[in-house]
Nucleic acid binder design. Structure first.
Lengths: 230, 230
DNA sequence: CTTCCTCTTTACGAATTCTTTATAGCCTTC
DNA sequence: GAAGGCTATAAAGAATTCGTAAAGAGGAAG
């Protein structure tokens, strides 16, 4: 199964937003939207999209600032939309980190082609991605580091594998069996006691209040679930 | 010394070619040109440019075919220029492998910005660099020398290879296996004990306080990592 | 032949991690 | 309200791994 790319659309015009959502969804993209730069950053942190399409003029935080902010932390493709066709504006946006600039009005087919071109250049699938983000968590698989709320935490290899696996499958319940197989390998004497101990240790390291887990919640008789956003 | 990017410009209008050559050269790009797709491929094979700017309509081999041909063998950025502004043409070019499409007439500053954006995405290869810099470290691969905090250190060949490899992959954790394969060659009786000894020796030579390593940190049960910045 | 340097191998204490066990608490069911 | 199953937490023992020192092997230079 091919996972569809996640696209975040940022614009303050509800009508354009609606058109884009529909067109992109029709082409099997996973779409979310935001109406200004600040909420866009929130969605970005929670959802970790593969591409961002943003308007330039917006309330709260304009497209240029959004580009710069995103570029500080990510290399994901950014496509800027704008009614402004002046050259200086284009240059400014491209130098702020945008990958492409499309002047409104534009043909939806052209935009889709530019989206395909941008995604083609960064063909990373979730499993191979080096940096995994989910809410307060950032997992750098290359550096083998995990930080929570900006603070790096030291995890043992098993804890690291367990948490990474949970984050990869965030939002869904994973059975004890699945988790044990993922961390200890399928052919093993699977004992759910391990899991309890490790989940406990993990919670002590990442939860604000380990007695009231917020990230790793337990689903009795089934397994555990990781939630990035409360 | 920063190597200037090599750009191949393909167009059959001598006048436009002249304008582009001058503008790009003025911005420190290394420019060569071709007047049709076939000769462009020849220059590409000979010269190995970092980016291609091409017109669509050309004799002998048009821009679309050139895109496809280049994409078969390379992932380098391609920017298409054309007088045709129809959407289908744009979509066709982008899907043929072009990274960007600019309609003539265009502002030279915009084109330059798009060139910068395209080159920014292209990954530079560290392996080819003669002089590697990372924080307090300078590796002169030509002279086979390494200096730390301005002070040259004497390293044995294996130590040199090990440290160079670590610096090349700075920031990421390298497994014992990877390191052993890199320094001693893959087909070898791999014994992690070597590594401990060599890392220890290396630390004694480059760390300010070998008992509290700052540059070469160890990720227990996984491997080692080189950190340039504290 | 001796000396120096580098590479390989071994050994051991210290630190960390993994596994196991035990105890207490919670929820559902009867 | 009691019983049974699941879960959370602490703690102890076993097993690995890390860092370091040191000794032997091989080769090059004097």
């Amino acid at each position: 199964m091919i996972k569809s790319s996640k696209i975040l659309v940022v614009d303050d015009e509800p009508q354009l937003l609606r058109v884009l959502r529909r067109s992109l969804s029709a082409h099997r993209f996973d779409v979310r939207s935001a109406s200004d730069g600040e909420s866009a950053l929130e969605v970005f942190n929670d959802w970790d999209p593969d591409l961002v399409i943003t308007d330039l003029s917006m309330p709260v935080m304009d497209g240029l600032s959004l580009c710069r902010e995103l570029r500080r932390v990510s290399k994901l493709p950014i496509i800027v939309l704008s009614v402004k066709g002046e050259e200086t504006t284009k240059v400014e946006a491209l130098d702020a980190g945008a990958d492409d600039y499309v002047t409104k009005p534009f043909g939806i087919e052209e935009l889709l082609a530019r989206v395909r071109a941008a995604l083609r250049r960064a063909p990373e699938d979730e499993d191979a991605k080096e940096i995994l983000k989910a809410g307060d968590f950032v997992v750098d698989r290359a550096a083998y580091r995990i930080s929570v709320r900006g603070q790096e935490v030291h995890l043992t290899p098993k804890e690291y594998e367990l948490l990474t696996f949970l984050i990869q499958n965030r939002g869904r319940v994973l059975t004890h069996r699945t988790l044990l197989a993922a961390v200890w390998g399928g052919d093993f004497v699977l004992q759910p006691e391990y899991l309890r101990v490790f989940i406990g240790n993990l919670r002590k390291k990442i939860e604000l209040d380990p007695s009231k887990p917020r990230y790793i919640t337990t689903e009795p008789w089934v397994g555990y679930r990781f939630d990035a956003s409360p």
